[in-house]
Amino acid sequence: MNVTKNARILVFSTVKISDPAIDMAGLLKLHYSPKVYTISVPCSSAVKPRWILRALAKGFDGVFIAADGTDCPYGESCTEKTGEIVKKTHQLMKESNIDPVRLKMAAICSVCSESFIKHINSFNDTLLKLKTTE
């Protein structure tokens, strides 16, 4: 069992866009770490910084926002707004001496299963390196 080798990652994904991509990764039997957990929200611009900070405080090594990007069904401002959330949270993390690298965001479209796996694997590697240096 290799679960101990993996970082614990919380993914905020979106019901209509990135959830289908993550589901399809499963359908295609694309493997990733079982330490990756998903909480679905309607839109990536709805993620509150306090949720991210809580996840990090409670033991998650990293938080990944699987953003809607330009595919957001609620409007084109989503990319900018999600970016603002990440910027604001990074600032709060710095103030609390949390390495900002522990929060990552990438746009995951509804068929971006392979891209999701790539992002999550590379985030996993980054977080593991961070743990080693700490």
């Binding site: 069992m1 679960v3 589901d23 499963g26 359908l27 990733y32 079982p34 998903t38």
Partner: peptide
């Protein structure tokens, strides 16, 4: 709770990890 698309299928290579998740 989604334990097929996000558990049993992507973690079919790791039954213990899948069960824990």
């Amino acid at each position: 709770a989604n334990i097929r698309e996000q558990v049993s299928w992507p973690h079919s290579d790791n039954k213990a990890g899948a069960t824990q998740k």
